[in-house]
Amino acid sequence: MKVSLTVNGARRTVDDAGESETLLQVLRDHLGLTGTKNACEQGECGSCTVYLDGTLVCSCLVLAGQADGAEVTTVEGLSAAGAAAVQEAFVEAGAVQCGFCTPGLVMAAHDLLAHNPDPGDDDIREALAGNLCRCTGYQKIVDAVHRAASPTTTP
């Protein structure tokens, strides 16, 4: 199956996607964009979170065919979109340990801040409740989002 999509601003075509393959597999296995992670592959952990036509999705729950013609932004494309502040905040706040959940959390935090530039703790908890992290206990992730919202104040 042929799938054409725009990934991080570049037009990409995959000629041999399987019919049951997902957008996650297209990104990781066909396009070599392994920043998007594969921790549960059933939409529970959020590690594979990307923007699909501007909407936050679990790429493991999107069939490759559904992404045909779509515009996709992955963690690799966030910096180009001017979102380095979120990524920097995760490093500075200590919100990264093993880092496997981090790309998904960075995407979700980016989306939250785009809709709510100054979220409270509960806003953050609600927005990130679909992303599992096994290392940090989440406290520094909350710190990171606050830090990204107002980069000048140090939590």
């Binding site: 963690v75 690799e76 966030l78 910096s79 990524q87 920097e88 990264v96 880092g99 496997f100 790309p103």
Partner: peptide, 21 residues
């Protein structure tokens, strides 16, 4: 001290075992 592998991890560049090719 912040992590020395922090930036590769937040930008998706860090190569986990499942990313190898």
């Amino acid at each position: 001290a912040t992590r020395l592998d922090g930036y590769p991890k937040v930008t998706g560049q860090f190569a986990y075992a499942s990313d190898l090719h």
